[in-house]
Design a protein around this nucleic acid. Structure first.
Length: 412
DNA sequence: AGGTATTCACATGAAACTATTCTCTGAGTTAGG
DNA sequence: TAACTCAGAGAATAGTTTCATGTGAATACCTGT
């Protein structure tokens, strides 16, 4: 019998056959799980009527071949921004297609690494969506702009570009892109573009160049968080399709909703929670989803998230985290300098080229952002200023993390 | 005692550097006519 | 002569290093009582 440690899980080859067989006669809990996945677009959007009609009114003129105003959409995560935007534009697109009006919708998520997170890549990706292959690298940026410009002009359409999570893009690549994009219109003869920017960050536009801000947010729409009742109704709607009838115990939906409402009305999280709760129940061979499963799901989501982050971290980052954990074992409170000392000796041990403290400082800050550690800057007066680092992971997960790190760093 | 000035140990910022991946171009090479 | 190969120049990008500057409060140092 063979057992090995694979991607943070112990895998055994024993009795796999029987294991798979049990799947066949198991009563399924789900009828259609993808309804609960975050990329699912339902047939209609609930509790967002007002926003839908606002957007509709703004982009409607596109049907008369007029350029719609640029729209800026704000709202926290899981408030249905992306969904509403794609839904309305999709409707518009359907009508346009029927009446043969040349409109094209481009949706782009600026957060996606390697796809649309820099100026070059954004334009390149847009051009690709318009049906022209662009190499990933090697060309000057203005060359890409030229091609982009040319292909838009060729198409002679009204093009609506949805930029999801623009704040991420601006943070990484600066606001010139938006400026260039809005400016292009004045040079276009046959086509026009209009931009729908979506942002999670409510204050993000404030530190934007005023020119860009005014041209980008000709119209602004704010998405308020859902309240608990709205989330409940969304969950009910979706679960009707996703689960077999009667599998959900009473109170399950209410609890999911309550949990999500606690976190500023994040519907996405509520849906994920419900889905994972279902998976947990399924895995436990139970026929009903019970309230306890939600707690388990909550824990599992968090645990998976952390383990996944740790596992996919590059070596230097892993070494840093390992140093933090190990230094932590000795002292209760640790500071950047102490972790760095350990890190240096660790590098020596595993023959890894040590990075400067400057860099480690940034890596520590990154882990803080990811929520793996809590690092707060404190001043120890005469004895300097530093980050005080604490682990933000429950104790029972640390052992697992250490294991993964030792695996990744080839320590034994 | 009360008020300033110092000082520590990093944090934070900006710019420059390195390595990798990829395109484009033009010189040199090859093979067929 | 057309097709092909291949090296070199130039770009974009991620990850770092180098250099420079910033910073909060515990202490050291004054001051006048």
């Amino acid at each position: 019998m063979e057992t090995k440690f694979y991607r943070g899980v112990w895998v055994t080859k024993k009795s796999l056959t029987g294991f798979f067989e049990s799947f066949i006669d198991k009563q399924p809990i789900f009828t259609d799980k993808k309804v609960l996945q975050s990329n699912y677009t339902p047939d209609f959007v609930s509790h967002r009527d007002e926003q839908v009609s606002q957007i509709g009114k703004i982009i409607g003129p596109a049907l008369r071949k007029e350029r719609p105003s640029n729209i800026f959409i704000y709202g926290k995560t899981g408030t249905g921004k992306t969904l509403t935007a794609t839904y309305t534009t999709q409707q518009l697109n359907d009508v346009a297609k029927e009446k043969n009006i040349p409109i094209q919708i481009l949706y782009l998520n600026c957060k996606l690494k390697k796809i649309a997170d820099t100026e070059y890549r954004l334009i390149a990706q847009l051009t690709r969506e318009l049906g022209r292959e662009i190499p990933a690298t090697g060309l000057p940026t203005d060359e890409i702009y030229k091609i982009f410009f040319q292909i838009i002009e060729e198409q002679g359409k009204i093009i609506i570009i949805i930029l999801d999570e623009v704040d991420q893009l601006i943070k990484k690549a600066g606001d010139e892109i938006l400026y260039n994009l809005t400016r292009i219109n004045s040079e276009l003869k046959k086509s026009q573009i209009s931009i729908i920017g979506i942002s999670n960050d409510l204050v993000f536009a404030d530190n934007l160049d005023p020119r860009i801000k005014s041209s980008l947010s000709e119209e602004e729409i704010v998405f308020p968080p859902y309240n608990a009742l709205q989330i409940q109704s969304i969950l009910k709607e979706r679960s009707k399709k996703a689960f077999k009838e009667g599998v959900l115990q009473p109170g399950v939906i209410e609890k999911c909703a309550a949990y999500a409402a606690r976190e500023h009305g994040d519907a996405r999280r509520a849906l994920e929670l419900l889905r994972v709760a279902g998976e947990v129940a399924e895995r436990n061979n139970e026929e009903k989803v019970m309230i306890e499963h939600i707690d388990q799901a909550e824990e599992k989501i968090e645990r998976d998230r952390v383990l996944d982050i740790v596992m996919t971290q590059p070596k230097q980052h892993q070494a840093t985290l390992y140093s933090i954990i190990k230094t932590k074992e000795i002292n209760k409170k640790i500071f950047t300098g102490e972790a760095y000392e350990f890190y240096k000796s660790l590098c020596n041990r595993i023959s890894l080229r040590p990075l400067t403290q400057r860099r480690i400082s940034d890596i520590v800050a990154e882990f803080d952002m990811l929520g793996i550690i809590n690092a707060s800057i404190i001043s120890k007066g005469r004895y300097g200023r530093t980050r005080e680092i604490e682990l933000a992971v429950p104790d029972h997960n640390i052992r697992k993390i250490t294991e993964i790190l030792e695996e990744g760093l080839e320590l034994s």
